[in-house]
Design a protein around this nucleic acid. Sequence first.
DNA 1: TCTGGGGTCCTAGGACCC
DNA 2: TCTGGGGTCCTAGGACCC
Length: 410
Amino acid sequence: MTTRRARLCCLDLDTFFVSVERLLDPGLHGVAVVVGGHKGGRGVVTSASYEARAFGVRSGMSIRDASALAPDAVFLPGHHEQYTSYSRRAREIVERFSPTVVAASIDEQYVDFHGCESLYRKAEDADDDATILRVVRTMTKTIDDELGLPASAGIATSKSLAKVACTLAKPRGVRFVRPGEEEAFLAPLPVRKLPGIGPVSEAKLARAGIVTLADLARAPDALLRPVFGAYTAGIRRDARGLGGADLGRERPAFREHDPRGLSLGSISNERTFAETSASDTASILCGLCERVCARARSRGVRAGCVTLRLRYSDFETITRSRSIAPTNVDVEVHCAVLALYRRARTRRLPVRLLGVALSKLSLEGPQLQLPAMDGGARRARTIDAVREKYGYDALHLATTTERSKRRSAS
DNA sequence: TCTGGGGTCCTAGGACCC
DNA sequence: TCTGGGGTCCTAGGACCC
């Protein structure tokens, strides 16, 4: 039997968006910063500095609530291109320390150090665990020194546990959970700390008297099955710190292509509106179709299924989807979306959100020469070429531009 | 916690085929 | 014509994550 070693590392950039904003504007250091929108405006908090958290601001909270809690905070809509760029640079640093890195999101990565001990061993290290701990500390310090981004890390025997350890290590901390100490480490924590348990499961568990991870680890299967379904066994393993040591797979958005032949994921775009003017829905849908199709073409995939998402002002949310002949051509997707919209829009209530998603993605295969394409595909490629040169908004389908004209006229 | 936007994965019912 | 069961795909909804 092989002994479990704590060699999986979860690395998370602390208050990532806020940290990047502080690099762009050093005057933001030491003050309460909230990223997600203008003060008092719509939207939700995507990142809050510790100074803002002191007032009770949390990510996911509406900007309006955050404005009430921390009226003197600096509110910023954010610079997403910058976040992407810094995320990539952080990853490049992590890859210097281990070849096995999986990005879980823009600010979170998992690193496998199995087999790296001899590479980094130093005489001063008490044992291999000490070696790995030292290397991870060096790694987070390098990210801070070179990019100016604070980071935290958790090191453990499983992915799930490394994640929990990382959360507890924040900010600017590194937490190492030794093999054998997993269950004791997790036992007193509230169930909500475990990845995969959200507010709904937390409430259901509480009703069954399950509050801590120790409770969860002991709970009979019959109690957990209705809450977690197929996840039951995995959740219980994770609650005892005995989860798997595999890193999971890279999110499709962070993958160049799909070497393992697994699902290519999905591509979606949605918009929530302040005021809902029904006359605009056609052009909004058109714009959404254009966007997802442009992304599909740039990723070299076609969609075999299109989904429309519609949310009424009372928050009732409806999805309608349809399988289609694989395509990434705007007009074909738009046509399917309009049919779905007619099916979905049964109530008179104002609409607050519209979304379009592409799924059942497949690789395009060898690129067709322009003359061999049909009209729609040819037009789409030409539009891509113009946008490549002059920017995304250089060209839109007629329905989309009419709306922006009307808006700028009013 | 009156709630954005990008995703992943699971469930469950019905259609359809053999 | 009726019956049953299994497999698979499609569709809609929902929980969760960052």
